[in-house]
């Protein structure tokens, strides 16, 4: 039930973000963010989710990423994703790829977290750097 509520809340957040972005753009094409973890910077709103949704130690997973530019900003061409364990000061042993999946949409394969603990995703879109921590058990 809690998970469903969470999903509904994320959908609502995504729609609000999209409406704000569309409205501010004055009739420009609507940039909708799919459900997922939502991050925001000065120029961008970003949503990402892992596939499968539960990240397990030692299991490969993919990331789906969507980004919308805020009014007056443009989506950057350079997009880079990574992850590391801040407490251990090391990254992954694998280098994920990144493939465009539509305007502002990307799919990234080849992720694997090889230890339990706190991992930090790093999303670099142009000069914007967004991070998000997850606890992996």
């Amino acid at each position: 039930m809690e998970e469903r509520r969470d999903t509904v809340r994320r959908h609502a957040q995504a729609l609000i973000a999209a409406a704000l972005l569309a409205g501010a753009a004055g009739g420009a094409p609507v940039c909708e963010l799919p459900p997922g973890t939502r991050l925001e910077s000065k120029r961008l709103v970003l949503s990402y989710r892992s596939v499968p949704s539960r990240i397990a130690v030692g299991e490969h997973f993919a990331l789906e990423l969507a980004a919308c530019a805020k009014p007056g900003a443009a989506l950057p061409e350079r997009v880079k994703l990574d992850a590391h364990m801040p407490e251990h000061k090391h990254g992954m042993n694998y280098r994920p790829d990144l493939k465009p999946a539509g305007p502002g949409r990307y799919r990234s394969e080849g992720w694997l977290f090889h230890m339990p603990g706190r991992w930090e995703f790093v999303f670099e879109l142009g000069s914007e750097r967004l991070t998000h921590s997850v606890q992996i058990e």
Binding site: H60, N93, Y94, R95, P96, D97, E109, G110, L112
Partner: peptide
């Protein structure tokens, strides 16, 4: 298939 994912994505580093 998926069994080659690790081989495709393994990173080689100085460490």
């Amino acid at each position: 298939g998926k069994s080659a994912t690790k081989t495709r994505h393994v990173a080689i580093e100085h460490r």
